[in-house]
Amino acid sequence: MEVPYELSAYTRVLKLASTPGWGEFSQVSLIAGAGILLIGLMGFIIFLIMSVLPGA
């Protein structure tokens, strides 16, 4: 894979990129937060199962 070192290649990408609006940012933040909470909840449930099973 060849990495372009020309400045024009980078400026073209920066021209295509745009700053997200508040609505898009908040939607992405909510989805990411829900994913983090879901993964944490799954880890906590696995922790509870693993701490209860050895004592049974």
Rank of each mutant, 00 (worst) to 15 (best):
Leu48Ile: 11
Gly21Leu: 00
Ser18Arg: 10
Ser8Asn: 03
Leu16Pro: 01
Leu53Val: 14
Gly33Thr: 14
Leu48Glu: 13
Ile39Phe: 11
Ser26Glu: 06
Val28Glu: 05
Val52Thr: 13
Val3Cys: 03
Phe25Ser: 13
Leu14Ser: 04
Leu14His: 03
Tyr5Gly: 08
Ala9Phe: 14
Ala9Gln: 08
Tyr5Asp: 06
Tyr10Asp: 10
Phe47Gln: 00
Leu53Asn: 09
Leu30Thr: 12
Pro20Met: 05
Ala17Asn: 05
Ala32Glu: 13
Val13Ile: 15
Leu38Pro: 00
Leu38Phe: 06
Gly40Ile: 09
Pro54His: 05
Ala32Gly: 07
Thr11Cys: 03
Thr19Ser: 04
Ile49Lys: 15
Glu24Cys: 03
Ile39Asn: 04
Leu38Ile: 04
Gln27Pro: 00
Pro54Trp: 01
Ser18Phe: 07
Lys15Asp: 05
Ile31Phe: 13
Tyr10Trp: 12
Ser18Gly: 01
Leu53Asp: 04
Ser26Ile: 02
Lys15Gln: 09
Gly33Gln: 15
Thr11Ile: 06
Val13Met: 07
Ile45Lys: 12
Pro20Asn: 02
Ala17Cys: 11
Leu14Tyr: 05
Gly33Leu: 15
Ile36Thr: 13
Ile45Pro: 08
Gly40Thr: 02
Leu37Asn: 06
Ile46Asp: 15
Gly23Phe: 00
Gly55Thr: 07
Glu6Met: 01
Pro54Cys: 02
Ile31Thr: 13
Ser51Gln: 13
Ser8Phe: 09
Leu7Met: 07
Ala34Gln: 13
Glu2Asp: 14
Ile36Val: 14
Pro20Ser: 02
